[in-house]
């Protein structure tokens, strides 16, 4: 299955794109998707370790199972205000 991953903040700059599509095996989890993202942007590995993940307007845990039609939104450390 394929999952779309939207990037934010410094992750966009490191990847050079605003979103990615990653191929995953069936019954994959958010953690599997993050591992696939790290393979695509290895220069962001340290940032991905401290990145939260959202689906819609909610944060999700890395052990969350994926169906394949989700859009994962990566939330690197925030700096608003």
């Amino acid at each position: 299955m394929q999952v779309t991953v939207e990037l934010n903040g410094v992750l966009c700059r490191l990847a050079g794109v605003q979103s990615l599509t990653v191929d995953l095996k069936d019954f994959a989890t958010v953690a599997d998707a993050m591992a696939a993202v790290e393979e695509r942007i290895p220069n962001a590995a340290d940032r991905l370790e401290v990145t939260a993940i959202a689906i819609g307007d909610s944060l999700v845990h890395r052990n969350t199972s994926l169906m394949g039609d989700e859009v994962l939104v990566l939330i690197p450390p925030v700096s608003g205000g």
Binding site: R13, V50, A52, I75, P76, V78, S79, G80
Partner: peptide, 24 residues
């Protein structure tokens, strides 16, 4: 601490960098 906003600072010398933030 809780709002997903990011800031990229632009400097007079032409550089820019993202501000190191905190885990949401």
């Amino acid at each position: 601490q809780r709002v997903p906003v990011w800031k990229e600072e632009y400097y007079l010398d032409g550089r820019s960098t993202f501000v190191e933030g905190q885990h949401i």
